[in-house]
């Protein structure tokens, strides 16, 4: 702290013109506004312009295969999108994917963070290995899992199954959604581990020792001391992962292409397939707006649940 230079205060003030508290406060609020504005402005443009265009596209007929035929069609696109059989599937799959991966990454993340918090040989290397998947591109991890690990003939899983005398499973045909959840969890568990590991380091050891002296077992300590301590970081994990999981795309695109049928089509992929595979920009725009609306509902719920709690810091 630079307390040492405080005596200079008197001289600095004497030479400056007298400023009233009110003026000073106004100056500060103008300055702070000027500093936030660029970020707010670019994000506002980033949201508003494409959104306005999307709203416009969603109200007209706009198929790239039929150029020039851009009549106003009102809410027809919305009607087609919402009654499409892919829509219910997309909704269900999005929810299923987000919730399963969240559950897995929080539970497994907490267990691993607690496990790694004990001291043992090579802890540094173990940490590096554990968080590595987070650095891998989604496309790469999807390709590696699809071709090298889950492949029904020459994949590693197939070899393990055969080793135990079982018939290898064609994962993407039999359990497509489970396979996607596995891949996405593999990518996001390390993120939870990363955050929770940090949080474990600030856990009060004395409190644990005191509890142990009072005869508390490891389970009781975990339940009454460790878990409450991790509540905030878990909230952060849920918040950030939800943001990314809502728009999972590359993993589905590279592995199943949304199939078989609509079994692994989430909303993001559904809109993509309408816009770029069926060239129906109008329909895709309507879908995009529905997704934006749903994302905002999700955001609202999440922010209500944990967001306020996160910014309320004394």
């Amino acid at each position: 702290m630079s307390i040492s230079s405080l005596p200079a205060e008197g001289t600095a003030h004497a030479s400056a013109p007298p400023v009233t508290v009110h003026e000073e406060r106004q100056r500060q609020s103008r300055l702070s506004l000027a500093m936030v504005s660029p970020s707010v402005a670019v994000l506002l443009i980033w949201m508003a312009v494409p959104l306005a265009m999307t709203i416009y596209f969603s109200l007209i007929r706009y198929n790239l295969l039929y150029p020039g035929d851009n009549d106003f069609v009102g809410l027809e696109n919305y009607y087609f999108f919402l009654t499409d059989e892919g829509f219910t599937a997309g909704m269900t799959n999005t929810l299923l994917l987000v919730c399963s991966v969240l559950l897995i990454s929080v539970v497994v993340g907490v267990l691993i963070a607690v496990l790694v918090d004990t001291s043992f040989w090579g802890r540094g290397i173990v940490r590096v290995l554990l968080i590595s998947p987070f650095f891998i591109m989604p496309t790469v991890s999807a390709l590696v899992w699809k071709n090298l690990l889950l492949h029904p003939v020459s994949g590693v899983f197939a070899a393990v199954w055969r080793f135990f005398g079982a018939e290898p499973i064609d994962w993407f045909a039999t359990y497509p959604m489970e396979a996607i959840i596995l891949i996405v969890s593999w990518q996001w568990v390390p993120f939870a581990v990363l955050l929770l590991m940090t949080a474990m380091q600030s856990l009060d050891q004395e409190q644990k020792d005191a509890a142990r002296l009072d005869g508390a077992g490891p389970v009781a300590i975990f339940w009454h001391i460790t878990l409450p301590h991790l509540a905030r970081p878990i909230a952060v994990v849920v918040m950030i992962e939800t943001i990314f999981l809502l728009s999972i795309f590359a993993e589905i695109f590279t592995t199943t292409g949304g199939g078989p049928g609509y079994e692994t089509t989430n909303l993001a992929y559904l809109i993509y397939s309408q816009a770029l595979l069926q060239f129906d920009v109008g329909l895709a725009s309507a879908g995009g707006l529905v997704a934006v609306l749903l994302a905002n509902i999700a955001a609202f719920i999440l922010i209500r649940m944990i967001g306020k709690n996160l910014t309320d810091k004394g």
């Binding site: 500060q28 702070s32 994000l43 795309f249 816009a275 995009g288 994302a295």
Partner: peptide
């Protein structure tokens, strides 16, 4: 500016910023 000159709107601005991340990119691709 948000951390040191907090106003009534700071928190909602921050949360609004985060909510822009929830937009599925594919919705605005075209």
């Amino acid at each position: 500016s948000m951390a040191f000159f907090e106003t009534k709107r700071t928190k909602s601005t921050l949360l609004w910023m985060l909510s822009t991340k929830m937009l599925p990119p594919v919705g605005v691709l075209v």
